[in-house]
């Protein structure tokens, strides 16, 4: 059924992505591909993977943006883009077959690939580019929030988070219940002023992005002082080094 859940639970599982921490290493995209090409939406097909024009289905895409305020202040921001598991998901309601659906119990947006006809309308309806069509399989694919990992009792509890979260070497991604105001992720969003992407599209995304913190101004904003490499004394060096130093200088 492609109507949105009438009585959704308060649970809204989603991601919080800290744009101040992300270093743009693409590890989330790679581990996402690794997990999901063997998971619920398997395979994430690659076309011409070792050829001149490699292409394929990915659920994470990592962009890099530069901002310029016109007064000489710029920032470089690495920006992971994936499904935001919207509350008013337009990709769900446009689906003619019922293949696209939003789970009542936790708000995850999924595709039933067995009944998807591959009309691609859901990808037209999503402003965030979260849905990618698998040309080999003829169906639409998207981020599952690792639904086959986060509830998997065969895994240790600490591993029951989406692959992009567990792999991030910088700790830029957090996972949790954004419907619970007391959850860690909700507190993080409140503390850092987490934002919705394109709120004007009316999709009510669940995922939040934490904007880069404001630059510090003046002395505080300068880089740490460099170590003094002009120090030419041999104090603290080993016996032979001190002896060589004494002979040569």
């Amino acid at each position: 059924m492609t109507c949105l859940p009438k009585d959704p639970t308060d649970k809204k599982l989603g991601l919080v992505i800290d744009l101040d921490i992300c270093v743009g290493c693409h590890a989330c995209a790679v581990n996402c591909k690794e997990w999901n090409t063997a998971g619920k939406s398997a395979p994430l097909t690659d076309y011409d993977p070792y050829g001149k024009k490699p292409d394929g289905v990915w659920f994470n895409r990592i962009h890099t943006y530069e901002t310029d305020d016109g007064q000489g202040n710029g920032t470089t921001v690495h920006f992971p883009r994936s499904c935001l598991h919207c509350e008013d998901a337009p990709c769900v309601t446009v689906c003619p077959t019922g293949a696209s659906y939003k789970r009542t119990e936790d708000g995850i947006v999924l595709v039933n690939e067995d009944i998807c006809i591959g009309c691609k309308l859901c990808s037209w309806a999503c402003p965030y580019g979260a849905r990618e069509y698998d040309e080999a399989e003829g169906v639409m694919k998207k981020c599952t929030l690792c639904v086959d990992k986060i509830y998997n009792e065969n895994l240790p509890e600490s591993s029951r988070v989406p692959a992009c979260v567990s792999t991030c070497p910088a700790g830029a991604r957090s996972f949790g219940d954004l419907g619970d105001p007391d959850s860690e992720v909700s507190k993080l969003v409140a503390a850092r002023g987490g934002i919705e992407l394109m709120p004007e599209q009316g999709t009510k995304p669940v995922n939040r992005y934490l904007p880069p913190r404001p630059r510090k101004k003046g002395e505080e904003g300068k880089a740490p002082r460099m170590l003094n490499h002009s120090d030419d004394s041999a104090d603290g060096a080993g016996l032979i080094a001190r002896w060589v130093d004494k002979i040569l200088s």
Binding site: L19, T64, T67, T76, Y209, P211
Partner: peptide, 19 residues
């Protein structure tokens, strides 16, 4: 600016594509 949420920092341009 609204797509990336970075609009308050000025003009937003993509300097590296994901692919």
């Amino acid at each position: 600016g609204t797509a990336t949420g970075l609009g308050h920092l000025g003009k937003v341009t993509m300097s590296a594509s994901p692919h």
